[in-house]
Design a protein around this nucleic acid. Sequence first.
RNA 1: AGGCACGUAGCUCAGUGGGAGAGCGCUACCUUGACGCGGUAGAGGCCGACGGUUCGAAACCGUCCGUGCCUACCA
Length: 892
Amino acid sequence: MSEGALAKGYEFAEVESHWYSYWEENGFFRADQTSSKPPYSVVIPPPNVTGQLHIGHALNDTLQDILCRYKRLKGFEVLWVPGTDHAGIATQNVVERQLAADGLTRHEIGRETFQERVWEWRAKYGGIIINQLKRLGASCDWSRERFTMDEGLSQAVRQVFVSLYNSGLIYRGKRMINWCPRCVTALANIEVEGEELSGSLYHIRYPLVNGKGALVVATTRPETMLGDTAVAVNPQDNRYKAFAGQMVVLPISGRHIPVIADPYVDREFGTGALKVTPAHDFNDFDLHTRHNLDIIQVIDERGIMTDQAGAYAGMDRFACRRQILKDLEKGGWLVKTEAHTHRVGHCYRCHSVVEPMLSLQWFVAVKPLAEAAIEAVREGKTKIVPAKWEKDYFNWLENLEDWCISRQIWWGHRIPAWYCRRCNQVIVSMEAPGQCPNCSGDSLEQDTDVLDTWFSSGLWPFSTLGWPRKTQELEKFYPTSTLVTAFDILFFWVARMMMLGLRFMEEVPFREVYVHALVRDAEGQKMSKSKGNVIDPLLMMDKYGTDALRFALTAFAVQGRDIKLSEDRIEGYKHFVNKIWNAARLLLMNLEGFEGPFEIPEKVTGLAHRWILSRLQRVAAETADSLDNYYFNQYAQVLYQFLWHEYCDWYLEIVKPDLYGEDAEAGRLARSVAAHVMHNILVLLHPVMPFITEEIWQRMKPFTSGLSIMQESFPESRSELIDPEAEEQMETIMAIIVAVRNIRGEMNVPPSLKVEVVCIGDQDSHLELLEGQRRMIADLAKVSSLTIARAGEIPKPGHAAGAVVGNMEVFVILKDILDFESESGRLQKELSKLEKEFAMTSRKLSNDDFLQKAPQDVIDKEREKNARLGEKLEKLNRRLDIMNGLRENLAI
RNA sequence: AGGCACGUAGCUCAGUGGGAGAGCGCUACCUUGACGCGGUAGAGGCCGACGGUUCGAAACCGUCCGUGCCUACCA
């Protein structure tokens, strides 16, 4: 061995940075578009350029990294495209805050200077999250890192816009949209988050103009009454039928407004009379269209009351509400106030209450695009895993309304539309036009709005590969293989990539979508900075190492269930990392000066060796199967179980005498097999624990060869090594060892004290097996002398504690120290457990229906089990009789 | 209001028609030459409730209870 023994503790910090740069320097993450290997490609969900790595990213990118590293080992040409998203509103907010600190606003410095500031900001801080991804071990091809505002991607955006405009799928129109008065921009419907608020429902009296009575309306937003242009009632409502067509006096303003009848009004809700404010409510706007009502805008784009609000002009909308209520009360119009919880829309970026607003915006007509996106999933061109998300996907796309894509901010892709100042012609084109094609005027102005960030993210799978240019990358890697994402951006992002990918590439953007869960805190709450319950992945990596964090996230990544994560669960997996390290340490200590063989022999002899090799083949198969099906938790668990509880607990303990013993041949075999299995475990684990596996792998030469574990082949399950006989025999031996240990434990025999053990059986195969494994049993069960005998050959020992294993009896001789009382108690407990099981199988077997209708193999199995239990019961019963007899003798 | 999940050991969760499992925690014992971030053994569960299908249900179906999430224009 070249590298020598391992340090006692695993120094993860050093190891991690060392190997990451080694991988990067050697170009192991780089994809070759000219390769003849089959392609496997993934595009990263681009984090916000303003972002810091949070636990959600850590999960998302760990899973992608697992898939990418796995596929590389499997012989694929893997491309993982990294990058960041310009995050229009979020980034603009960040830079505006920075300006505010200098006492400036973006309007004061102007659009161009502001954009320069954003680019400066990006140059300085935009790489933070990239470095955090490297810290996590992400094996992205950094030579292909993209940013949604890159020139190439921007050109893609313009081309898509122009193309959709020319085919009539992008249009400009004046419609009701959601507006954030804080961000001062339009939002897409999906960017509005409904939040349950406890507010009030105010009942307000609107007197009839003719003085003969009044209508009482109910509203949650009294301030909008300044813009009321009607009161609506249901035509079927007998209470109000007579009012329809009359006029009422709008309190405070004194304006006269009509009472209209419309079936939209819910008779049951509130008073059954609805105030109608077309300028500030989606449904009221619809009523305006049907009834040709006036529109009066009383709230402006900053949430301030307009001149139309009369005396309230200039007030903030919420201050106005309070004042209106006071004034209504003073005037006697406020009939009553009742508590009312309702959902109010909030801006997903800044959390302000959004305002419905009539506004001139750009839209994408999504219907035809959505139909194609639905069709592609229905036909299985893209598979969503777990499949339950397909339902949500369909439901969303089927009920999709046109997508508002213009934003009134400065950071983003400016809309490629120009307006002729002379004739108002709209010109949409890739580049700034020289003159108006309609009137030849040369006074043109570009639209000041930018596009929704998600518009550019929607192109990500092909824009990052060079589209609209025809590149080798597109040829080789599109459609991408797998998209890994959390469900909360299924609609924001996945659905839009589907729509746009199908439209412009005429092919789905990805073959499979794996939708993973959200990471929550230990109480199941969403993590948020304001709640203070965030787990910072960077801190976790500092404390426990990246591999431990990655393994924890993977072990909890069960399909369809959110992950409740707490710090001690991460700490727990650090223990696993430690276990791997120490197993390797034991191995490497014993490989010093080892001269081979570095391969296992063609034909392996020795029960334990055959057994562990057989188990390894099964584990390799399960591992691949788990990853192929996105059962990440199962992948982690299988390896955890195998490494710790089979390789370490049993195999290494079994071969220790060979390692330390005199038999050189046995020592060589043990070293070869132990190293072979470790080598394979390392490769199997590498996708989830890239760092420690590389570190150990490097030290295992010449068992390993090459530059990196990354260049290995993923272990195939070798059927010729699967050895059911060895597995069965080991199970028998292990059961006997456990039985002896159990007795020792129960009877309080100290570990330092070796005991005499007698095994009695009546099957040749068993007796031979035990004879062959004397040493293993003696070592692992701490046995001083082991007697193996055929039933009847020797008397069953009296002063001994016994157990039944299969159809053998195992006795631990306790001569003077046997306490008959506790031994008979122990046997009794075991008996009652068995009796219950025996009764159950007996009942089944005496059921004619079962015997007639159950499949034969089930019946056979049940018969076998019943016989086994019966035999065991008989032996235990006899033993109990003996113990009871001895106890009575003692009493006499 | 509708839809979708989930309810299994103290905690967190696997398991989807024929033997109730894991990790952590807990108890007892242990300076065994890789590891106390360890070892060995043990305790602990009418698998939310009720009904149905079935020879057989933790699993399939229905109802209910509880929890969570998503969607919706009841002002």
